[in-house]
Every structure is written in structure tokens, then in C-alpha cells.
Design a protein around this nucleic acid. Sequence first.
DNA 1: TGTACATCAGTGAACGCGCGTTCACTGATGTAC
DNA 2: TGTACATCAGTGAACGCGCGTTCACTGATGTAC
Lengths: 232, 232
Amino acid sequence: MTQTRRERLREETAAEIKQVARRQMAEEGAAALSLRAIAREMGLTAPALYRYYPNRDALVTALIVEAYINLGDAMEAAEAKAAATDYDGRWQRLAIAYRDWALAHREDYNLIYGTPIPGYDAPRDQTILPAGRILILIGQLLGDAWDAGRLQLASGYGRLSAELEQAADELRPYLPQANVPTAAIILTLVLLGQLHGLVWGELYEHFPPGLAESGELFQVEIGAISHRLGLG
Amino acid sequence: MTQTRRERLREETAAEIKQVARRQMAEEGAAALSLRAIAREMGLTAPALYRYYPNRDALVTALIVEAYINLGDAMEAAEAKAAATDYDGRWQRLAIAYRDWALAHREDYNLIYGTPIPGYDAPRDQTILPAGRILILIGQLLGDAWDAGRLQLASGYGRLSAELEQAADELRPYLPQANVPTAAIILTLVLLGQLHGLVWGELYEHFPPGLAESGELFQVEIGAISHRLGLG
DNA sequence: TGTACATCAGTGAACGCGCGTTCACTGATGTAC
DNA sequence: TGTACATCAGTGAACGCGCGTTCACTGATGTAC
């Protein structure tokens, strides 16, 4: 269990590589991530990095996984500050933590939720769990609210085709709660899409400058969502 | 007005460059766009392209502007198939045209609504008009519905801070209608964000595979939106 | 209608750049007896 | 406690690649008289 000195140094270097990569992404964008540039900044030669990551894609994957974990941690920590039965409070905290994290870690956000890096294929087996956790946080909240009779589903959600019902049903084994209605599974995805849409508009300036920065637009909309779901 | 033969050929070549660029974007991603590769595919040498575009960024800008115009055209044409007073029909057609266009032109969609290409700065003076047209299409519809007394704004939208009211008010001169309530301006942005969020989830596989492809999820949600806005 | 000249699309060579990855190696750190 | 050996982080040179952009040029197309 006790690490040798070598093991410790090794882990520190691997972490430093990720940290420098993150810094460079912030400057040049995720797509411009370059092993040589990272090595240069660290005072190493490029081949030295191959001791830590077998190739560039492996480093990108490590960064993606870590970003999802950090986002999930931030959301979970924020949600925990609300009482378990305060569904409106949990939703708002989750949503705000999502936005705050995106603004504070723009390039990490790009990396996980932006356009995929050209020539890089995310290995789903490594990313699906940390990525799914974000959905599960939202889904869990909706499930809890449903159990407590505090979730109103929009009318259209009651008339899903058999095909869509079945496709959504297949996700059930991956959910912490099995008793949630299918419509709530669909709603989970829609809510993630709405959170992303709001952050996207602000982050990439598809909303006119000066409108979204204060956070009030986001706040108003997640309040409206909470209200129409009956969480409040 | 009559074009000389030379002028005609010139325009055709300029258009062919854009077309080949689009094809290559579809294969390699927008960030990988390369003048040399385009020239190669056209059977030209790379410097020849400089007769048509002063540099790579100018070509990218031309592609972006054209993409916005095409999306706007597609949405406008779809909307026109509904009666002017059928606000629900206009909204649904706008939304569906948006999704259809995104699916049919994935890399164009990436280009305008995805993560910005590293090292490329969109010249706002050239992109703002065609980009704004998408917002104006949605805004116009909301304005028309409002005038007809067929738009319900969510409760939270009635209590905007003076700062947000003012920021939204400043957009008014750019809108075709001046009489729309400020909350409807905010709502326009939110709706664009929701459309993007839904398409994003499907296109970049942030929704589990098999769920969104049929379009039913999208359809259900835009129906729900229409319903709660009172357009139906 | 024919000739002299201007325009301009496209060429080919070159510049300087950065990239990911491999390979045989050095030299310091750690381990076994 | 000291010596022999194994491990392994990091080096430096090299590979082959593609990129955007410049420059002086050729040769075909168009224009003026």
C-alpha cells in the first residue's frame, strides 16, 4: 500500500502532464492539444511522455474522464447542500453547479460536451460511466420527486409510442431506481439538453453579449422549469 | 450585368471550392479543413486557391455565412407551409426544419453551432446578420403570437431585474417588431438553446443511442413547448 | 479582321513550421544477496 | 554494509508527414485599336 518514492514521483508527473494539458487547452483549444507542446512547457522531451501515456489519444481520454468526474463531483456536492426532500432546491443546485463548472472550466466543458476532437474517437467503455453519472444525478432527483408525488410530467409525455417506451425502458437497469415512469427517463435527457443549451448560448456567444453573463437568464429559466415540473 | 465567360468560370470555381471544402469537413471534421487537401481534390495546386480566397480564414468565414443562410432558408421555407395564424404549426415546422437541416448537414451545423475552430476568430461583422436571422425567425413568430394574444409567458419571466430588462431592450431595434414584451426576447434565446440542446444530445451522442434517432423525442418535446406557450 | 497588349488563372519550387511516434542510448534510482 | 544487477525515467536523433503562405513564372483568355 505504501508507495515507493518512484511510484509517487511517477503519479505526480502523470498528474502534472494532465494539468499542463488543461492549461494549454484553455489557451489554444482542446483540438490543438499537442504532446510536444506539453513536453516543452514541462522542460521534457516529447518521447518522455510516452512513459506515462501510450499515445495522444490516451491522454485525451484521461482528460475527458477526469473532467466528467470533476463535473459530477461538483454537482453532487452542490446538491447535497439541499435537504433530500427539497426537490426544487436540489434541482436548482444541480443546475447552477453545472453552469458554474462550465464557466470555470471552459475547455474541460468543450472537451466533454463540445464538438468531438477531429481524429479522436472516445472509447465508450471508458467514458460511459463518468458521463452517465451526470444523467443519473438528474434522473435520481426526478425519481425521488416522483416517489414523493412531486413531479408533474407534461401532457405530451403521456403518449409515447411503444418503440420509444421500449428504448427508454432498456435504460432502466442502469438507473438507481427501477420504478420511475418512462416519461421521466425521457425528461432526464431533455433536461440535460436544456442545461447544455443555456450554457452553450452563453459560452459560445450565441446569445447576444451582455444578456446571459449575470446568470439571471439561467436562473429564471431553471426556476421556470422547476415550476412547471411541480418541484417547487 | 451579363457576366463574361471569365467571371462565370471564376464564380463556379469559387463555389466548387466551398463545395469540396464542405465534403471534406464531412469526412474529417471542420477543424481539419485544409487548403492543400481541397486543392488536391480539385486537381489544383494549393496557391491557386489564393486567387479566390485571400487565406484559409476567409474561406471558413464564407462557409459559415453560407451555412447560416442555408439553415435560415430551410427554416423559413418550412415555416411558410403553415398558415400565418397557425402559431403552433409555424413553431413546429421551424423546429423540425432546424433538426432536419442539422442532421442532413452535420458538419455545417458543427461549423456554426459547435465548438469554435481553434485559431479561427469569426469576424462578427460578417456573421452576425445571417446568425441573427435564426433568432429573428423565432422572435418574429413569438411576436406574432403575442400580438394575437396567443403567447403565454412562464410566471418567472414576469419578474426580471431592471438590468436584464434593459439588456434585452437594447436588442429591440434589431427586431422586426418593436412591441414584443421583453420576456419574449429572453424566451427567444431560451428556445434556440432548447432546440440546440435537443439536436446536440442526438448528434453528439449525449443521449443514449437508439432513443432520439426516430425524431419522436424531439417531436414530443417541441409539442410540449408549444403547449406550455399556449400556441396550440 | 488582325495585331499588340493587358489581364489573370494556375504552376512549381521554396520557406519555415509543428506534429506523433520509434529507437537505441544513458544514467540515476531501487533491489537482492 | 557493500556490491552486482535490474528497473526505468528521460534523451537526442531521426522518420515521414502535412500545413499555410510567398514568389517569380507561364500561358491562355480577353480587350483596344
